[in-house]
Nucleic acid binder design. Structure first.
Lengths: 195, 195
DNA sequence: TCCCTATACTCACTTTGTTGAATAGGTGCG
DNA sequence: CGCACCTATTCAACAAAGTGAGTATAGGGA
């Protein structure tokens, strides 16, 4: 039931069409959730049949008609209930971990490449988060924002993503360092080594 | 195809029955992957019919017979191929993020509770990782281990998990601090505030 | 003796996520 | 003018992951 609540949360700020949501979940919300258009349209239909969102058709002249979905009272209530329920622990499920775990001597090159890519991605995300953060704070201080903003969630989740990517970069650095060390000690004709 | 490779990687060190794997994936490998027994039995069957693992029945006297699965050459090859393939970026998909994002003024108590729980879980995991680390290093230094060990994956993934949990704790601290600030500024009769 | 836990596995089902394509008008560019 | 891309959605089929219950045997403790 993950996507369900992610969609509801995404509709908290403003109503949206399936298409708009697919943009958010492809780029913006994808920071911590992703979904294809198909999933979103399906989820929206289910949410509507459960009465948690309400869609109205907006006729457009020069574009296909669209259905704009908004949260209902029941939808807001559902979010309250969801928030109050126990959170089950999340596993990482990152392919990169599996690759590193499984890597033998032959794979170190490929693993290095994978980690360099990951580090690059993490750096890009971090930069994006920093831009989003600046926009969100809009010149004000963090303290002021946390005091005055209607909802603190958007800022604090952003900080969560930011810290996650920073840690990610550090981990990639550590792994790449370790691989370097390996390579060097494999190359040097190691004099005093145990067979 | 996530579980598939996680299972293969788990069989790299030693063969196992579905039951044993379910233990690993419930506790140990669950550090970064989790699966129910049913998933594992199904996955093992698929892997066997694809020739990536091979199971042999071990007759037991005082226990039900069991099937012990081991990697085949094709299984090892599959892991090499997997490692060399591009890694697709992983989304976080953490309910806690959605909860925080969606939280309004009424939900701050519930959110606080959720974050305190998460922090506690993270601390426990961290402690477990530290124990595993000590066992893995077995008195040797990190440098020595990285130089001499057959595979560096187990240690480096452990360090990844460790860093992840440390960052998790810091994030929980930050969020809980922010919620505290909120509460205080909501309680104090704020004199010079904009309506 | 009875119940609980551990071993070892299976069946049936639902929910999620992924892939590929079809439809259909509009905008911008060279 | 044609071609690629953007808006906006739908259909069909499948693969992967998760849920819940059930079966059977054995050992240990109250």
């Amino acid at each position: 039931m993950g996507l369900r609540h992610a969609v509801l949360a995404s509709l908290l700020d403003e109503e949206a069409t399936g298409y708009e949501l697919s943009k958010r979940f492809d780029v913006s919300v994808a920071d911590y959730w992703s979904a294809t258009p198909q999933q979103l349209y399906r989820e929206l239909e289910r949410l509507e049949s459960d009465g948690l969102v309400h869609g109205r058709v907006v006729e457009q002249e020069r574009r296909p008609n669209k259905r704009v979905f908004a949260l209902t009272e029941a939808g807001r209530e559902e979010l309250h209930i969801f928030i109050a329920q126990p959170t089950r622990p999340t596993a990482m499920r990152d392919d990169l971990l599996v690759k590193l775990l499984a890597a033998g001597a032959d794979d170190l090159g490929a693993v290095r490449k994978a980690f360099e890519e990951r580090r690059e991605q993490a750096r890009n995300k971090l930069a994006r988060y920093d831009r989003l953060r600046d926009r969100l704070l809009d010149g004000k201080s963090e303290t002021a924002h946390l005091r005055d903003a209607k909802r603190v969630g958007p800022y604090l989740t952003l900080m969560g993503g930011r810290m996650y990517e920073q840690q990610n970069i550090l981990w990639c650095d550590a792994v790449l360092d370790a691989l370097d060390q390996r390579e060097r000690s494999a190359l040097t004709p190691d004099p005093g080594d145990r067979p």
